[in-house]
Amino acid sequence: MHPQRKKRLTLILFLVVGVGSAVGLLMYSLSQNINLFQTPTQIANGEVPIGRTIRAGGLVVDGSVVRAEEGLGVTFKVTDGVASVPIFYDGILPDLFREGQGIVALGQLDEAGVLQASEVLAKHDENYMPPEVQEALEKAHQAGKANLEAAAGY
């Protein structure tokens, strides 16, 4: 290779690698702030100050959804499998909100440890399947079959 071209190639490689590692380190040091939401474990460990607006994310605990007698108020718990956090929300829930579904709630933690939410967003997972397949999976699950994927046919 021509020496001048070699020099330019090295310069460009240095540029890309240099910028890459600088941004990588920056991202690493900022990683806690880049997270969209805090997990229930982080909240239970007291990593989240009371009264500050945060987002909490996790799966809605089965059987934890309690609707108020009047109005739209609803209380439920979200979990990450380790800890769980109670959430109170007064408003219209997204269509995909249901027990077992992942959600992200924006709000403040009060003294009682309840997250007073002002916005609840549904999180969708990366699985896509037709309803029939979902039913087949459900049936197989209830029959206690270990091999779920075989029942779904893929």
Binding site: M27, S31, I34, N35, L36, F37, Q38, T39, G57, V104, L121, K123, H124, D125, E126
Partner: peptide, 8 residues
């Protein structure tokens, strides 16, 4: 790498 609303 991070918690996002967007699915994996």
């Amino acid at each position: 790498w991070w918690n996002t609303l967007h699915q994996p």
